[in-house]
Amino acid sequence: IVECNTAYGGGRADTENHLKAAKDHGFTAIAPVDIMDAEGEVALPVKGGKHLKEDFVGSHYLNYDFTVVLSHFKGHAMGGFGGAIKNISIGIASSAGKAWIHSAGKTKGNPWGNLPPQDDFLESMAEAAKAIIDHCGDKILYISVANNLSVDCDCDSSPEDPKMGDIGILASLDPVALDKACTDLVRASEDHGKIHLIERIDSRNGMHTLEYGEKIGLGSQKYELVKLD
């Protein structure tokens, strides 16, 4: 299980406390946990980026030759929703790399006092994801668990309780298609609780991440949904 430290304080902002949080939540009992920026970061190039020319990831990420991206699909206070693209961009980024993305390439320090226009942040997430995808080639797959659907991210210290029932588990080799399928299933659901999540996605212009991601070659918003019993 791989992870990087956060850029916003809290119990996962440094390696020692991050590993303690992993242990407290039972992750270390499942598999070794590697905080990838415990020994610094490395830069991956962003080809054709409008905001980012490089993406800063935990240095240990270069130790791996295949990536399985396990995401909890849910809402997000800044991105509108969090899924595969957010997980590989923000999740694999080092602590300073997270600040770099949130500031649209302006600072690796505290970005919270002077955040960029919303679409610049969303586009920066897609550009950081492109650096990961270009690095991995075809050695990456994506699984999203669309259960316990809250409007807030798991990173929120006091998230809103889930208002929507479980949708299920989806997987793809295309992160854009996967995120689009998850959002489509939310919108098509008969669960009345979906209005809260849809409002969060649309109020943050969250679908722009997929539009821009498709434009820069992350994948396609067209997909075929294959149901497995």
Score class of each variant (00 low, 15 high):
1 I>M: 14
2 V>Y: 13
4 C>K: 04
8 Y>A: 13
9 G>W: 01
11 G>T: 15
12 R>C: 15
15 T>I: 06
16 E>Y: 15
18 H>P: 07
20 K>S: 11
26 G>D: 05
26 G>E: 09
27 F>E: 12
28 T>F: 13
28 T>N: 03
30 I>M: 11
34 D>A: 04
35 I>Q: 11
38 A>M: 08
38 A>Y: 13
38 A>P: 14
40 G>T: 04
42 V>H: 13
43 A>N: 15
52 L>N: 05
55 D>Q: 12
57 V>A: 13
60 H>K: 12
61 Y>N: 14
62 L>H: 10
62 L>W: 14
63 N>K: 08
65 D>Y: 05
76 H>E: 02
78 M>H: 10
79 G>M: 10
83 G>H: 00
84 A>K: 01
85 I>R: 10
87 N>P: 01
89 S>I: 05
90 I>Y: 02
92 I>S: 11
93 A>G: 07
101 I>F: 00
103 S>A: 05
105 G>P: 07
109 G>R: 08
110 N>Y: 03
114 N>W: 11
117 P>R: 08
117 P>N: 12
120 D>E: 14
121 F>L: 15
125 M>G: 12
127 E>P: 06
129 A>F: 05
130 K>P: 13
132 I>M: 10
137 G>C: 08
138 D>Q: 06
144 S>D: 09
146 A>G: 01
150 S>M: 03
150 S>L: 04
150 S>I: 07
151 V>I: 13
154 D>G: 09
154 D>Q: 00
154 D>R: 00
156 D>K: 10
157 S>Q: 12
160 E>Y: 10
164 M>S: 02
168 G>Q: 04
169 I>A: 02
171 A>C: 11
173 L>F: 15
176 V>Q: 06
176 V>D: 04
177 A>K: 00
177 A>W: 05
178 L>H: 05
179 D>W: 01
179 D>E: 08
179 D>H: 02
179 D>V: 09
182 C>Q: 06
184 D>L: 11
187 R>F: 09
192 H>K: 15
195 I>N: 05
198 I>M: 05
200 R>K: 13
202 D>H: 06
207 M>E: 13
210 L>W: 07
210 L>T: 11
211 E>N: 14
212 Y>G: 00
215 K>T: 10
219 G>H: 05
219 G>C: 09
221 Q>Y: 10
223 Y>I: 09
224 E>W: 15
227 K>S: 15
